[in-house]
C-alpha cells in the first residue's frame, strides 16, 4: 500500500521538489510578483487542462483547443470592437465580448463532440481537422495580421488579467475555483462516474444504461466552455489575437493531464493531478528562465523527459497492483 501511495503522490513530490529547487537557485523565485506571474500563466493552460481531463478520461482527445482559443479571442475582440460604437466603451460591452467567447467555446466544443458521437469519427481525426479550421479562420479574420482590441476597451478590460486580491490575480482565482469544482465533479457526481466508466469500457457503460453519447458530448462542450473562459482571461493580457495565439496549448494541456496521472487510454481521471501537472510544467519554465543552470531553450526537452517519466512511473504502479 505504501508503494502505491508513493506513486499517487509522485507528481506532488516532484512539484514540491521543484519549488524548493527554485527557491534555492534564485531568491527572486519566491517574490510574490514571480509566483503571481507563474500561477497566472498556469491558469490558461490549467483551465483548459481541467476540461481536457474529462475528455481524456472518457477515452477521447481534443487537439483543437489551442486554435480554438485563438479563434475565440479573435471573434470576442471583433465583437467588442464592433459593439463599442453602439453600446459604448463600458463594462456592458466587455461582458458581451466575454459572452461571445464563452458561448462560442461551448458551441465549438459541442461541434467537436457531435462529430465524435453522432458522426462517429475518431476524436483524433475530428479535432485535428477542427484544429486546422479554427487556426485558419482566425488568421483569415485577422487577414494574416493581428486583431487588436479598441484601446479604450483595453484599458477597461486590463484589470481582469492584472488585477485581483493582492498579488492573487483574477486568473489564479478563477483557475482555483474551476479546479476545485472539477475535482469535485469527477470524484463525487454521477457525471464523473459516468465519464470514468465510459473511459474504462464504453460497452459496459452502454449496457448499464449510461447515455454514452450524451456524456461524451458534454465533456467536449465543457472543455470548449473552459477554453472560452481561458480566452476571457487571456485577451486583456495582450489585448490582441493573431494566427499565432495559443500555439501548442493543446499539447501542454494534454501533457499536464498525463503528468497528473490521468490514463491516456481513459478510465481514470485525476483533476487535482492535472493541476499539479500544469504547475510542474510552468515551474520548470520559470526556473529555467530565472537561472542560468540550463538554457531556457532546453525547456521543451526537460518537459519531454518529465512526461515520459510520469508515464513510466504510472506503468510501474499498474504492475505493482497486479502482483
Amino acid at each position: 500500500m505504501k508503494r502505491i501511495d508513493l506513486h499517487l503522490l509522485g507528481p506532488l513530490i516532484a512539484l514540491v521538489g521543484l519549488f524548493i529547487l527554485g527557491a534555492l537557485l534564485n531568491p527572486a523565485f519566491l517574490a510574490p510578483a514571480n509566483l503571481s506571474n507563474v500561477l497566472a500563466r498556469s491558469a490558461f493552460i490549467g483551465l483548459i487542462a481541467v476540461g481536457m481531463t474529462f475528455v481524456i478520461t472518457q477515452g477521447g482527445l481534443d487537439l483543437s483547443v489551442g486554435s480554438m482559443a485563438a479563434f475565440l479571442a479573435g471573434i470576442a475582440i471583433m465583437a467588442m470592437n464592433a459593439l463599442a460604437p453602439i453600446t459604448g466603451v463600458n463594462w456592458g460591452t466587455v461582458l458581451l465580448g466575454m459572452g461571445v467567447a464563452l458561448v462560442g467555446g461551448l458551441l465549438a466544443g459541442a461541434v467537436n463532440g457531435a462529430l465524435v458521437t453522432k458522426a462517429r469519427i475518431e476524436p483524433f481525426i475530428v479535432t485535428l481537422g477542427t484544429m486546422g479550421i479554427f487556426r485558419s479562420l482566425v488568421t483569415w479574420l485577422a487577414d494574416g495580421g493581428t486583431l487588436s482590441l479598441d484601446s479604450g476597451l483595453r484599458a477597461l478590460y486590463r484589470p481582469v488579467y492584472f488585477g485581483g486580491i493582492g498579488w492573487i490575480t483574477w486568473p489564479i482565482i478563477v483557475f482555483a475555483i474551476v479546479a476545485v469544482i472539477g475535482e469535485w465533479t469527477m470524484r463525487h457526481t454521477r457525471f464523473g462516474r459516468h465519464v470514468e466508466a465510459i473511459g474504462s469500457n464504453d460497452r459496459v457503460a452502454r449496457y448499464s444504461a449510461v447515455d454514452v453519447e450524451r456524456v461524451r458530448l458534454l465533456t467536449y462542450a465543457l472543455l470548449g466552455a473552459l477554453v472560452g473562459l481561458a480566452t476571457i482571461l487571456y485577451v486583456p493580457r495582450l489585448g490582441s489575437a493573431s494566427g499565432s495565439t495559443g500555439v501548442l496549448w493543446e499539447l501542454e494541456a494534454i501533457a499536464a493531464v498525463i503528468i497528473g496521472g490521468t490514463a491516456l487510454k481513459g478510465g481514470r481521471g485525476r483533476v487535482w493531478g492535472t493541476v499539479v501537472g500544469v504547475l510542474i510544467l510552468s515551474l520548470i519554465d520559470n526556473i529555467l528562465n530565472l537561472t542560468d543552470l540550463v538554457s531556457p531553450y532546453l525547456n521543451g526537452a526537460i518537459q519531454g523527459v518529465i512526461i515520459v517519466l510520469a508515464v513510466v512511473l504510472q506503468r510501474e504502479k499498474r504492475t505493482a497492483d497486479e502482483r
Partner: peptide
C-alpha cells in the same frame, strides 16, 4: 466485455446503473 468494469472497485460496478439513487453528490 459488456457486464463489468474489471478495473474498477466492486461498489462502483454495483451502482453504475443506479447512480441516481445515490443523490447528486454520490
Amino acid at each position: 466485455e459488456a457486464g463489468l468494469l474489471l478495473d474498477k472497485p466492486l461498489a462502483e460496478n454495483l451502482t453504475l446503473s443506479a447512480l441516481d439513487r445515490l443523490g447528486f453528490r454520490i
